[in-house]
């Protein structure tokens, strides 16, 4: 058992590192436009990784993750605009905002389960979105605001260029992936999966499932906040649209498509959906039609998602 596990561990880490290396190898080869697009996708993939920790590993389906993404986005954005924060502190502020808000929402929402949990998270996120619109003198509402250029430099390098965007997004994505892979294989990750599979049994075995779930929500919120802050700092823009319900649905979609409970699923799902939507939006304004259709099709025919199917059919060891 341990032997198989260890070899699975080596292969799992190997695959993760190989994917990250491939993304790094593409860096100098890609034209500017693709660098900027892929940088965005990698930031969204961080968001999806955070969502996956809660949904894929712990089995809690949230419909309110836009709240945590927006918390990170606005903490970094307002911190840079009004607080004069530079990129690194602004990013850290984003993580803290995401984690803090998630801990608060989690403490309340986890008193419910199942469908009620979904609706409570949805309602909190909706209240957050409406609050961003309500205080539009400060947040600039739907119109949004640009981050000051001074906040968008790391170690004297401007984040605005395509090269730097890709590099920064890749570095953050790599970090997020490694942390998530480690978390999934850690004792906490194992208990999270146990809660997903059978909460009553995990509780009977002596695990404090309430605390495990709260930890999962908080970690998930921290990743989402990090993604939001990274998005704001890399793209230089913050707006209330990112708090709308669509940005709660999208991470769910990415994770479902890529494969819930797999380490690479979030990236695969985000890349797949982003380019699919990009392709359709060239043809029609109704590009969210594709998102809807994919949601229904995945629910009906591939509830495990792309990487989940690969794991089931080809590679049982897939992380």
């Amino acid at each position: 058992m341990t032997g198989r596990d260890r070899s699975g561990g080596t292969r799992a880490w190997g695959l993760t590192v190989a994917v990250l290396a491939a993304l790094a190898a593409m860096w100098p080869l890609l034209p500017d436009y693709n660098q900027i697009t892929l940088a965005r996708v990698m930031v969204f993939a961080i968001f999806a990784i955070g969502y996956n920790i809660l949904f894929g590993y712990t089995g809690l389906l949230s419909l309110g993750h836009a709240l945590f993404f927006a918390a990170g986005l606005y903490a970094a954005g307002l911190g840079a605009r009004d607080g004069g924060l530079t990129a690194v502190p602004a990013f850290l502020a984003g993580i803290l905002a995401g984690a803090g808000l998630a801990a608060g929402v989690g403490a309340l929402a986890l008193r419910t389960a199942g469908v009620a949990f979904m609706i409570v998270t949805l309602m909190f996120a909706q209240a957050g979105y409406l609050a961003l619109l309500y205080f539009n003198e400060w947040t600039r509402g739907d119109e949004g605001f640009n981050l000051p250029a001074a906040s968008r430099t790391v170690l004297g390098l401007e984040l605005a260029g395509a090269d730097m965007r890709y590099g920064t997004a890749l570095a953050l994505f790599a970090l997020a992936t490694l942390i998530a892979t480690w978390l999934a294989r850690s004792p906490l990750g194992r208990v999270m999966v146990a809660v997903r599979e059978n909460e009553a049994r995990a509780a009977m075995l002596g695990y404090d499932t309430g605390r495990v779930k709260l930890a999962a929500v908080t970690i998930s919120g921290a990743f989402s906040g990090a993604a939001g802050a990274a998005y704001g700092l890399i793209d230089g823009y913050a707006g209330a649209t990112f708090a709308s319900v669509q940005y709660s649905i999208l991470p769910l979609l990415w994770v479902l498509v890529g494969g819930a409970g797999t380490v690479l699923g979030p990236l695969v799902g985000a890349v797949f959906m982003f380019y699919l939507i990009d392709l359709t939006s060239g043809l029609t304004d109704a590009y969210m039609l594709v998102a809807g259709a994919v949601l229904v099709l995945v629910t009906l025919f591939a509830p495990r998602g792309i990487m989940g199917e690969v794991r089931r059919r080809v590679a049982r060891w897939l992380p």
């Binding site: 199942g114 469908v115 979904m118 769910l252 809807g292 259709a293 949601l295 629910t299």
Partner: peptide
Amino acid sequence: DPERTIVATIGLLYILQQATLM
């Protein structure tokens, strides 16, 4: 299934809304 139904009807929401837009 309660959770899968919610996800599927979210998909349905976008299909109906976007088809109407078209």
